[in-house]
Design a binder for these strands. Structure first.
Lengths: 157, 157
DNA sequence: ATTTCATGTAACAGATGTTGATACGTGACT
DNA sequence: AGTCACGTATCAACATCTGTTACATGAAAT
């Protein structure tokens, strides 16, 4: 489950959305297939993890992947036609919140009220997330100047 | 870190806020000291975990704890003077979100833009949480009818 | 004064769950 | 054919939280 001690910064964050967006933007700059090996390195992980992460985007039709010589990953449509929301959904709608209820004890009115209060706020916060994600197309995240693709932590990239 | 496969329901939620609220409401109904043993059982855990969880609330002055015979836990002020926000803060402001950035590579403009976009939404969502938490005093969560305190899962409680 | 009760805290073990690594099968291009 | 790259299953490594136990401290009862 989650923290018990401090508040600080949980290092237990799902970084897939951030990771995938990062890669997609780079793919939007280079218009040739890039291999899992290269792209995985750019996000500081390995090819198998990368493929696993991108499977949903491929299924959603945001990117295409090809085997063999000259194979690799490419955008299937321009960044202007991909919303942050659609990427989030393609990843399988990863859990947004780190808090929740231990269990739904429906017989306890107190528990019921508490759950409702928290759930109510979480529903609103989730709606906020989805609304804003839906407004953002990936081209708007592109820096003005082209950015070179390099290995994670090895300089600009 | 977090999920990679499905989306479903992460069972890895921090339930402390929900747990603590549950207990505080029960304490608001019974006006006598209750032991860690009893209260822990009502949330389905054990006394040590309970004390660890309540330490912040005691330090914040929301509850008092006493040792020895007749000792235990009591509210230090009426529920109407305790906001959901103050409870959240007393717990150490547990992490709200399950998503984040893998790392802040400040040299990568793409990464920078992605992080900013996500962070912006998260800041707004957090503000929403805190605003709503701040509006809720615990007495408003109290069911109209008194609720008996029983063991977790053992019926109403 | 001693005994009993209950908290306060530290320390450790167990469980859970995610990421990373490896291996192997499949298809495509040379 | 041979090489390249993806697709996926499986396993190990790692991190983190919860649950448990143990023990010291302090208060009330006998």
């Amino acid at each position: 489950m989650r923290a018990q001690a401090g508040a600080e910064e949980d290092m237990n964050k799902d970084t897939r959305l951030s990771d995938v967006l990062h890669v997609l933007l780079h793919m939007g700059q280079l218009h040739e297939p890039l291999t899992s090996d290269v792209l995985a390195r750019s996000m500081g992980t390995n090819p198998a993890v990368f493929r696993r992460m991108m499977a949903g985007l491929r299924d959603a039709g945001h990117v295409t992947s090809g085997k063999g010589h000259g194979g690799g990953w490419q955008l299937a449509r321009p960044l202007s036609e991909i919303t942050l929301l659609s990427v989030y959904v393609a990843l399988g709608r990863p859990t947004l919140f780190a808090i929740g209820n231990r269990s739904d004890n429906p017989a306890c009115l107190v528990q019921k009220n508490v759950n409702a209060a928290l759930a109510d706020t979480m529903v609103q916060a989730e709606a906020l997330f989805l609304a804003r994600f839906g407004e953002v197309t990936l081209d708007t995240l592109m820096p003005d100047a082209p950015v070179p693709l390099t290995v994670h932590g090895g300089g600009p990239g």
